[in-house]
């Protein structure tokens, strides 16, 4: 598989935004008192963590491709 440079940049930027959002969701959770809202935030933290791991996998594959090509 091969990745284009511009899509890697796009994914990289998305990962940076995702990390900031994840931090916010995680910290804001402690201030929320409504159980339903808290539950959605917890779900978002789990989902965002998974998304970030997927981004990381894709980015490291792209880095390997850069090195070998």
């Amino acid at each position: 598989m091969s990745y284009a440079l511009h899509e890697i940049l796009e994914v990289h930027e998305l990962a940076a935004i995702k990390a900031a959002t994840l931090t916010k969701s995680k910290t804001m959770q402690l201030l929320v008192s409504d159980p339903a809202l808290k539950r959605i935030m917890q779900q978002d933290v789990l989902a965002s963590t998974r998304h970030l791991q997927e981004f990381e996998k894709l980015l490291s594959e792209a880095a390997r491709q850069e090195v070998t090509s």
């Binding site: 598989m1 091969s2 990745y3 994914v11 916010k24 969701s25 978002d44």
Partner: peptide, 24 residues
């Protein structure tokens, strides 16, 4: 949270139009 979710959707959609490889 709602604003962040909204921006997340937009960011993902914009990135999707820039992606070419099937994995991405």
């Amino acid at each position: 949270f709602l604003v962040r979710a909204k921006e997340g959707v937009r960011n993902a959609a914009v990135a999707l139009t820039e992606a070419v490889s099937p994995e991405a």
